[in-house]
Design a protein around this nucleic acid. Sequence first.
DNA 1: GGGATACCCTACCGACCGGTAGGTAGGAGA
DNA 2: TCTCCTACCTACCGGTCGGTAGGGTATCCC
Lengths: 204, 204
Amino acid sequence: MPQAPAAAADTKVLILHAARRRFADHGYEGTSLNDIADDVGIRRPSLLHHFPSKEAIYRAVLFELVGDWTALVTAAVQDPTTGWGQVERVLSAAFEFFEQHTDFVRLARREAIDGGPFFDEIATGLQPLFDRAVGFLEKEMRAGRLRRHNAPQLLLAGYGAILSYFSDAPLITVLLGTDPLSKESLRVHRREVVDLFRNALDPR
Amino acid sequence: MPQAPAAAADTKVLILHAARRRFADHGYEGTSLNDIADDVGIRRPSLLHHFPSKEAIYRAVLFELVGDWTALVTAAVQDPTTGWGQVERVLSAAFEFFEQHTDFVRLARREAIDGGPFFDEIATGLQPLFDRAVGFLEKEMRAGRLRRHNAPQLLLAGYGAILSYFSDAPLITVLLGTDPLSKESLRVHRREVVDLFRNALDPR
DNA sequence: GGGATACCCTACCGACCGGTAGGTAGGAGA
DNA sequence: TCTCCTACCTACCGGTCGGTAGGGTATCCC
């Protein structure tokens, strides 16, 4: 029983959505095209009508997410605030983004660990963001609006602390005994992390 | 050309060693028994003479590492020191362990993200360690030897900051432009993280 | 010497992988 | 109405996966 063809754009969106979930949950190797096709409700060869290969699907998912992340950071940095206020703004924006894009966090983590075939493009995509953040921190430290630290290392520590909470949610669920992604847990975690960095950075 | 059989114990050790590297580098799905067998220098069926299945090999690798980690934490906590001094001691011990067991870090990370079939046993193995650490922090906070914080969340933030530095080394290499696992980089990172937590915890 | 056992091998299995070939249904435009 | 295109299908490709069967050889124990 043949099926009425859907609009190509719609199917492509459905594929990307299903693929993002699968890749985030099980990684590149742990996801088969059949898995994705089943989620969409079509057969595998029909997937490959919309994308030339599994690799192309993965790449599309990755770039979409990096694009979202870049847009958010760019917007957050637009604001001319300085000192601790700006740091807190960016921290908050990052938190909100990660809350709403847990797939992105886990995918990024997998890429960071793997150093796989797509890794280079992702890394060079993220580097300007990192450099800009380091530049901002160092400028504010020199101006005395933030306490002096090794800016890149501090940034890495912060990125690690926040990202881990979202990427390792399955483990943290067991450790805490409650859902770490619940409104209340998120509120508490966010306050704790912001506090950690205020103690380190805010000259008061 | 048949080969002289080696002592079973030796081969088993070689298998576990090769498997740990492979699983850490490429994950469970991304590692085939042929990969491991090639590293050891035997054929795949010979692997399965020493272990009943791929899953059994993975499980053995995982439990060995969790055992090492448990032993280290237990030893570090043995010391009767209190307050910030004890926190700094444990932090230092963890750093050293992670430096020497980067395979463990990446494997643990993969497990934490996946929530896979082996995950439950690992998580319940780690939970007592987590609970004990939280207990220590809260005791010291009540006694006024550490500044008050939400202990579990602070611990998670710390664990995330440190672990990420090692697990995400491939990405960080690109971001920093230097080897994050070099003696000098490690020294700087360690000082920065210890500083971060001293600012938060040490009542001075 | 003769088993028994431990270790490793080649040869094979069924299942699944990503990807291709070829065909069909149905809408759009001449 | 004829033609072209899109979207999807079934059937198949070569190759790899984890795992098994069965044989050969070295070593240990009697």
